[in-house]
Amino acid sequence: MNVNNVSLEVVCGNPSQFPDTQFNEIAFAGKSNVGKSSLINALINRKALARTSSQPGKTQTINFYNVENKLYFVDLPGYGFAKVSKNLREKWGKFIESYLTKREQLKQVVLLVDIRHEPNENDKMMYDWICHYQNNVLVVATKADKIKRSQIQKQVALIRKALQMDPNHVIIPFSAETKQGKEEIWEILDKWVLEEENEK
């Protein structure tokens, strides 16, 4: 997709604030500080429209980015960050769960994991959830520029094994710095959006 017009349209702190539109939605999920905002910024050719933070757990809202008046990119709060209170974690959990399970416009969830580390229990839970509720699954392994090029395939294999990924599911190494993987990710997102539009 050619992206020229993007705006942060809605910032939601509770389900009543979700936008009332028929746009398809692609959500980005991952643990705190995995690089969701950086990925969104790279995909929409912006430096800082999606808010990045060096402080994990900072994003506490669900943010809807209108892309070309065709779809929404949805930035979900990072999961699994220990320094917020248990009450807040539970509240976030219910908020995110209500979006993920009840939102009819949600078509796909992209799972982000850090390519340098083996996925943890929260990552595995999220992957299993996506497999249960969604037809297509894409895993993006972020921060690919932080490891040697020769290590990338080894780490991809490690992530596949740890998540017990279906062989048909795609994993793409990505770097916000070098934009490695950006084109491949857009190819898959374009296909999802076109399939949905054709089915309408």
Rank of each mutant, 00 (worst) to 15 (best):
I44R: 05
S85A: 05
V139C: 11
Y65I: 03
L138D: 10
V3A: 06
Q134L: 10
K94D: 03
P173Y: 13
L43E: 02
V139L: 11
G13M: 14
F18R: 04
A29Q: 07
N2C: 02
G30P: 08
N24E: 13
S7P: 00
E118G: 00
R46S: 09
T59L: 02
V109I: 15
F174E: 02
K179V: 01
V84K: 05
E118F: 01
Y72P: 00
M1K: 01
K36Q: 12
E68L: 01
N66R: 14
Y72A: 03
N136W: 01
K83L: 03
S85C: 04
E199K: 14
H117G: 11
N122D: 12
V156C: 12
L112Y: 09
K31C: 15
P77F: 12
M126L: 12
L43S: 03
A162L: 02
Q108H: 13
A48E: 10
A29E: 11
N2F: 09
S175C: 04
L76G: 07
N136L: 03
I40D: 03
L106M: 04
K91N: 14
L189E: 01
K86C: 01
C131I: 11
W192K: 00
L112V: 02
L194T: 09
W92C: 02
V113Y: 08
R116Q: 14
F73L: 11
T59C: 08
W92H: 09
V193Y: 13
P167S: 14
V137I: 15
D114P: 14
V11H: 05
I159W: 08
R51T: 13
S175A: 04
F28M: 04
I130K: 04
E68W: 10
P77C: 11
G35Q: 10
V193I: 15
V193P: 13
D128E: 13
D114E: 07
E90I: 08
E121Y: 12
G13P: 00
Q108S: 11
K148A: 13
G80A: 08
P15V: 03
T59I: 05
V110N: 03
D75R: 02
F64R: 07
V193C: 06
D190C: 07
Q164F: 01
E177H: 00
Q22Y: 13
I62M: 09
G78H: 06
V109D: 11
L194F: 06
E196M: 01
N122A: 14
A42Q: 04
G78P: 08
S32N: 10
M126D: 04
L39S: 08
E187H: 15
F28T: 09
H169P: 15
G30S: 09
E199G: 00
F23E: 04
Q153N: 14
L189C: 04
V113M: 05
N120Y: 11
K58R: 15
S54N: 15
G78K: 00
Y133K: 14
P56C: 13
E184I: 05
N4R: 14
K200M: 07
E183H: 11
V11G: 09
E68F: 04
Q164Y: 02
Q108Y: 06
V74P: 13
N168C: 05
I172Y: 09
I40A: 05
V140H: 08
E104R: 10
K102Y: 13
K102F: 11
M165S: 04
E187I: 15
I171D: 09
N120F: 09
I115H: 04
K146V: 07
E195G: 00
